[in-house]
């Protein structure tokens, strides 16, 4: 997994609530057996016309947002299915950080497993960043996971909090499976106890 330490980048504003995983990546693009290549279908219905041409008014079809690495979004971002294709599509497009008032649980979880930093902030602060994002190319924002703060283009700092374990994994690019396998002893003894006490399980 790619590490996440700090990022200074263009942020794209997407001021919609309840952006669901079908919007992020419609089901018909889930037929891949790879993790990569989904970026071109990110936000497919919002981004393209039926004939495949781009919708010019969609934010990610505009300069400089084609190069956005941060997404500023509305409430309940990522609701819907458990498809990890949603973070894969964001990542493949180049998004490394999503900032929203809140996220759907599974999507939130899936972001951390793929090196994307999802940041929950109070709505007023998301609004400020949304305004910054609307400024376009000259208004880069900095996301510093080490210090747990965002630096706005005007220099104002906004703090955020990330679960310590997840922060540690993201900062170091650590793979959960490797960490868990170090606890194989505990899993073995759990299974041994289970065979005795709950043989039907």
């Amino acid at each position: 997994m790619q590490k996440f330490t700090t990022l200074t980048a263009i942020a794209a504003p997407l001021p919609l609530a309840n952006v669901d995983t079908d919007k992020i990546i419609p089901a018909r693009f889930l037929k891949t057996i790879k993790r990569t290549g989904l970026g071109k279908n990110l936000f497919n219905a919002m981004r393209y016309n039926e004939d495949g041409s781009e919708k010019p008014d969609f934010v990610l079809n505009q300069e400089p947002y084609r190069k956005a690495e941060v997404l500023i979004a509305g409430e309940n971002f990522g609701c819907g299915s458990s498809r990890e294709h949603a973070p894969w599509a964001l990542l493949d497009f180049g998004i490394r950080c999503v900032i929203a008032p809140d996220f759907a649980d599974i999507f939130h979880n899936n972001c951390f497993k793929n090196g994307i930093l999802p940041i929950k902030l109070p709505a007023e602060q998301v609004e400020k960043l949304m305004a910054d994002a609307r400024l376009g190319g000259n208004a880069r924002i900095t996301v510093d996971l080490e210090k747990e703060e965002i630096v706005r283009p005007n220099g104002e700092r906004i703090g955020f909090k990330i679960d310590p374990f997840r922060r540690h994994c993201l900062l170091n690019g650590l793979d959960d499976i490797g960490l868990t396998m170090q606890r194989a002893g505990a899993i073995d003894s759990y299974e041994a106890k289970l065979r005795e006490t709950q043989p039907w399980r």
Binding site: S82, I106, D176
Partner: peptide, 10 residues
């Protein structure tokens, strides 16, 4: 509960 693919692997 539902899980993502990384968790499926886990």
């Amino acid at each position: 509960f539902g899980i993502g693919t990384s968790e499926v692997e886990h």
